[in-house]
Amino acid sequence: MGHTNKVSDLQSHTGVEVMRCYQCGKCTAGCVLASEMNYPPSYLMRLLQTGTKPNLDKVLSSNSIWLCLNCENCLGRCPMEIDIPKMMDYLRTQAIKENKLHPDSKPIIAFHKSFLDSIKNTGRLYEMGLVLSYKFRTFNFLQDLSIAPSMYLKGKLHLLPEKIKDRRSMKRIFGQTIENAKTDNK
């Protein structure tokens, strides 16, 4: 008898061999955000190993996958060289697809979206625009109010965006990837 379909699905989408994890916990021991996570990385790997729907749902609707910083401390030390950050990337995609989003994901997704909007429009990051757009997305207008003026004074904030010349290429890249319904959007 082989592993369940769920486990081999995970493997075929990510190349990460979930069953190789022998639950030593070294990833968790060194993860800087393990204590903030619903399930620390090794626990999350175990939930995936069971291959059951309820456990997969637990993972998708947890905050763990959103809090992971992709810092790769876990991968760097894992005796079995299991690429947990890569698995996290995939799990985030799935969580969005299945709309099982933990509340902690909201500000993080909002930030990413604002960031990408900026690139799409100008080809580069427009930090002022990013922060404003993020504030609209999260309705958190007070955040960062204190540092913005000093940033401006120290010459760290442009009032106007820098734009690249070939902005059409950005439209094309976004159009064919993240805005293309066929690709794996997160």
Partner: peptide
Amino acid sequence: NDWNCCGATAAHAMNEELSLSL
């Protein structure tokens, strides 16, 4: 010339092809 943003964590976290294309 006319370089663009690398997409940083946002692209990487949201869409693989985008994160490679930029």
